[in-house]
């Protein structure tokens, strides 16, 4: 008997996929489950999280954010979703574990799988599109994929330039003896890539073990910044005046021109995201139930206590702060005193 019969392989594949390939369950508590990222189109706010949960709020009714009704949408995977990126026009991509990339053409109403590969054993953490065709998705262990056709096809890339100089030198030595070994070693040493930010032609990425890198050619080549901190960064944000990165144990650095200034939070918990607010203030979302606001005059101050013990992502929407975290969505009016 021929064990490599194509039908047999197909059958095995179907059986093995079956365990992992299940749809997200629609459950009443999905908007209160662990949600990890939030984004918005012209019409809707879209949050993604554990168990393939995608919840959507319609913002065309002009309701205040507290009274949004969050509805869970059918999703063809139950993998944890870690990042979501939306274009104003209504095209939305979400990424997550199982190297999953999902796509919605209609403001998050319906979803299809664009890419999924459990054999990689790597999760995606973030996705970003430069326009409606060209985009990149990043994740653990240097996972980096690019599309040029709106996500119909995705291609893997390995970026040695994301590594510190020492590692690059070491890899170059290997490369001289064997190209295969080089590729293997490169894939093994690449750090987790945690977050992308793109503005004014500059693309920034932050990641594991102090990785901060910038690209001016949409991520084809990278310039790694000198190390300012050995721990991981989880977020990077760009404004007209500065770039800001934040990460482990309350570390925050602000880059004005070419200089990184420490602006560490008073609390030593991991910062998952920074929300840039008007007047150059920003808000820190961390593994803590307290929301901390920074402005140049006062420094950090706690402005809100939430029930969720960690805040993973959020956005500023019509004078409201909407956050997602361990206990799902919370929304409140940004206090006018600030």
């Amino acid at each position: 008997m021929n064990f490599t019969h194509p039908l047999l392989i197909l059958l095995l594949l179907i059986v093995s996929i079956d365990v992992l390939a299940k749809n997200a369950e629609i459950q009443p508590l999905a908007p209160k489950s662990l949600l990890l990222d939030i984004s918005q189109t012209r019409n809707a706010l879209i949050a993604v999280g554990e168990r393939g949960h995608i919840v959507v709020a319609n913002k065309t009714n002009n309701e205040p954010a507290e009274s949004f009704e969050w509805r869970q949408k059918p999703v063809p995977t139950a993998e944890m979703l870690t990042g979501v990126f939306a274009l104003e026009t209504g095209q939305v991509w979400a990424v997550g574990h199982g190297a999953t990339i999902l796509y919605s053409p209609d403001h998050g109403e319906t979803w299809t799988i664009q890419f999924q590969d459990f054999s990689l054993e790597k999760p995606f953490f973030d996705i970003l599109f430069f326009n409606d065709k060209q985009g990149i998705a990043i994740g653990a262990y240097g996972l980096f994929m690019r599309t040029l056709d709106g996500g119909l096809t995705w291609h893997k890339e390995l970026h040695a330039t994301l590594l510190p100089v020492d590692d690059i030198e070491y890899l170059n030595e290997i490369k001289q003896s064997s190209e295969d070994e080089y590729q293997e070693e490169l894939a093994a040493v690449l750090p987790h890539l945690n977050k992308l930010a793109f503005a004014n032609g500059d693309l920034w990425v932050v990641g594991e073990a102090g990785l901060i890198a910038k690209s001016i050619d949409q991520g084809t080549t990278w310039y790694r910044e000198d190390e300012i901190y050995a721990g991981s960064f989880f977020d990077v944000q760009i404004t007209d005046e500065f770039v800001i990165v934040a990460g482990l144990r309350g570390h925050v650095f602000q880059r004005v021109e070419t200089d990184w200034q420490p602006l560490h939070s008073k609390r030593k918990t991991s910062i998952n995201q920074i929300i840039i607010l008007p007047n150059n203030q920003f808000l820190i979302l961390a593994n803590s139930n307290l929301l901390s606001l920074y402005n140049d005059n006062i420094g950090y101050q706690d402005i809100k206590k939430l029930s969720s013990k960690s805040q993973t992502s959020g956005l500023f929407y019509k004078n409201h702060i909407i956050t997602v975290g361990e206990l799902g969505i919370s929304a409140f009016k940004f206090p006018s005193a600030y």
């Binding site: 992992l20 662990l34 990890l36 554990e50 944890m80 870690t82 574990h97 199982g98 459990f118 054993e121 999760p123 953490f125 945690n194 594991e208 721990g231 991981s232 989880f234 482990l248 991991s270 998952n272 593994n287 960690s310 993973t312 975290g325 361990e326």
Partner: peptide
């Protein structure tokens, strides 16, 4: 994984 909530899964490994 550095207490990153994005790793709050049952590992398939």
């Amino acid at each position: 994984n550095e207490a990153n909530p994005k790793w709050r899964v049952i590992s398939k490994n």
